[in-house]
């Protein structure tokens, strides 16, 4: 019954059998993405020709140090920022070709964004915060919106806080509400920039479990994170350094990327998990990077 009520007004961007409108076969495809910033100090290239593909129901963590370009990469995918060159294809949409107005509409209907600092509107209650995207994007019949919003809040365990203002909630509670808000228009993709960066480990774990539940229900999640523990729990980790993807780990299997000094730094800092004998080594980095071939010797 509820499923009927929550019928979307827009078609989902599910992967068709063969490919999307622009020839992409993955849900998210980024080709040769370059992003350059101009400032008084000169030109600075943040992304140096990145290629990324993400499929439906993947849980992808984007990992890197400050200034590596990971947030910029995410901003390209969400349309928050525009590439200097390259393409960003999300489903049937060439995001890099849209203007601001078109991006806003597309994003509201196809992406859910979760911010590090929650970014709930302070003068709206939790229920109203969750309702807002539906009203902005005219999703769902008006008479269904409130019930849907309550349903989403109950999914994140916040239905009894529906009438509270964000100032009355803890960080963890606010982030849950932010996740519910991100799901308001039932987007296929959720993008989270350091969603647990402002939370304690227990709360972060709870939030992460929410994400895992969403992935299990078919959502695709891209998450920027510094959190080592969480990074190990995703199905895929993309490691970004100096504007390039330097490593990628899928289901605890690393792909063979040449090691750069930056990679070594990342390993030493524990950001990149050490794989030994097919098992992730969670001890502190030793500076030695065993190769996949070693483990199977």
């Amino acid at each position: 019954m509820l499923k009927h009520w929550f019928h979307r007004n827009q078609a989902r961007t599910d992967a068709p059998d063969e490919c999307y409108r622009h020839g992409n076969t993955h849900l998210i495809e980024v080709h040769k993405l370059i992003k350059t910033f101009q400032s008084a100090a000169g030109t600075f290239t943040v992304l140096k020709g990145i290629d990324v593909q993400v499929d439906t129901a993947e849980f992808v963590a984007v990992i890197g140090k400050s200034g590596s370009g990971k947030s910029t990469l995410i901003n390209m995918i969400t349309g928050i920022d525009r590439p200097t060159s390259g393409s960003v294809l999300v489903g049937d949409t060439a995001v890099h070709t849209l203007n601001e107005e078109q991006i806003a509409v597309w994003r509201g209907r196809n992406l859910g964004v979760v911010f590090q600092f929650f970014q709930l509107l302070p003068t709206l209650t939790t229920l109203e915060n969750v309702l807002l995207p539906m009203y902005l994007c005219h999703m769902y019949p008006a008479r269904e919106r409130r019930e849907r919003a309550m349903h989403l809040l109950s999914q994140v365990g916040m239905s009894d806080q529906a009438q509270k203002l964000p100032s009355a909630l803890s960080g963890g509670q606010q982030q849950r509400v932010a996740i519910a808000r991100a799901l308001a228009n039932d987007p296929p993709i959720l993008v989270a920039d350091e969603p647990t960066g402002n939370l304690d480990s227990k709360t972060a774990d709870a939030v992460f479990q929410l994400f895992e539940g969403l992935v299990a229900r078919g959502k695709t999640i891209l998450m920027v994170t510094h959190d080592q523990e969480l990074a190990r729990r995703v199905s895929r980790a993309i490691i970004v350094a100096d504007g390039e993807i330097v490593d990628e780990v899928r289901n605890n299997q690393r792909y063979d990327f040449p090691q750069t000094p930056s990679q070594q730094d990342l390993t030493r800092d524990g950001i990149v998990p050490i794989i030994a004998n097919g098992v992730m080594d969670t001890s502190a980095g030793t500076g030695h990077m065993p190769s996949v071939t070693d483990s199977h010797a």
Partner: peptide, 12 residues
Amino acid sequence: QIGVMKAMGARQ
């Protein structure tokens, strides 16, 4: 807040 609303789909 304006940025967040635009991120959610609000038009100018």
